[in-house]
Design a binder for these strands. Structure first.
Lengths: 174, 174
DNA sequence: AAAGCACCGTCCACAATGGACTGTCAAGGA
DNA sequence: TCCTTGACAGTCCATTGTGGACGGTGCTTT
């Protein structure tokens, strides 16, 4: 009956509470709002949208310019979202390729490893500063729930940078 | 020619440097050594092993008791591993369902959210203490590369706990 | 002796990923 | 005015990953 949703599909329904959006819009809002702790891809979003439309959780509107096709929430979509939200969230999943490279670092020329480390450090520094830039606005006007998730992102990025800076010289700067 | 590996397959080759192992052994070593930042499943390990055997990167030995079938590294497996390790590691992937629940927390009864939060906090506290228990041994005798990855795990878990403890009352304890 | 359990591998349906591919419209430069 | 460029929008597919059911085997303990 109630088609059991996956977390990605449920998130899309969550975003659709703010009004009709196209797949493209959903991808970009998801990236900015939950992208730091929930990855999703374009293919996935369109697939979920199609199957949720089949299930009647969502309804496609008329195709606009550039094949733009907005989806809006239906009452049963709303219900399915609430039902999903009630379920115990599962454990987190992390896949961090750099740590694989570091872990097997003994098989790699030290300068090469150090270069990869430096590249990634820079990427995280950039992300942190982006998060910190939006922090005051989110904290002051947003709801506490979104604020908490952004806080997680900031703490995560800070932690990663500290880890980089605590790396022994043999790894970070041979 | 050189069959381009994926990270999971490459990790298996990495572990096989320590000597022949069965799929089962590989699953358990991977879980303990890289499980905190690289997830893999049994099905996946056996599939990769089979396809790497086809490609000659790995060679199956004689079946022992309990269908135990050890695989050993071949020279071309060694080469493929090194080649993979040279490649720029990609960005990390995180999927943290609890943060989704928190982010959409406005749609959830506060006590329910608080209960989920508490459950997850306990799980992370447990993991941290497990990591801290093995830390001295790894730091003192292991290689610095493995030590660095465990250090990441510890910092990550500590950060998560701090985040839990910084949550506003409305979320953590309504 | 048998019962239970950890060990070992297979199989399958389904979900997710990443990137190639096609096409559309807007804005600015020649 | 026309043309190029690039952001926008969606589709498709091969590969990779997940989760769990299933079947068998050989220690260990009672």
């Amino acid at each position: 009956m109630a088609p059991q949703l996956n977390a990605t599909a449920a998130s899309l329904l969550g975003f659709l509470h703010a009004g009709p959006m196209t797949g493209w819009d959903l991808v970009t809002t998801a990236e900015t709002l939950i992208g730091d702790f929930w990855s999703l891809t374009r293919s996935q979003v369109y697939r979920e949208l199609a199957s949720m439309a089949d299930a009647g959780l969502v309804k496609a509107g008329a195709t606009g310019p550039r094949e733009r096709r907005p989806y809006r929430l239906t009452p049963s979509g709303r219900a399915a979202f609430r039902a999903w939200l009630q379920r115990e969230p599962g454990p987190e999943l992390i896949r961090f390729p750099l740590l694989l490279t570091v872990g097997f670092g003994r098989h790699l020329p030290p300068e090469k490893l150090a270069a990869y480390v430096a590249t990634h450090r820079a990427r995280h520094a950039k992300r942190l500063s982006e998060f910190e830039a939006v922090w005051p606005a989110v904290r002051d006007d947003g709801d506490p729930y979104l604020t908490a998730t952004l806080d997680f992102g900031i703490r995560y990025e800070r932690m990663v940078l500290e880890w980089f800076d605590a790396l022994p010289q043999e790894i970070a700067d041979p």
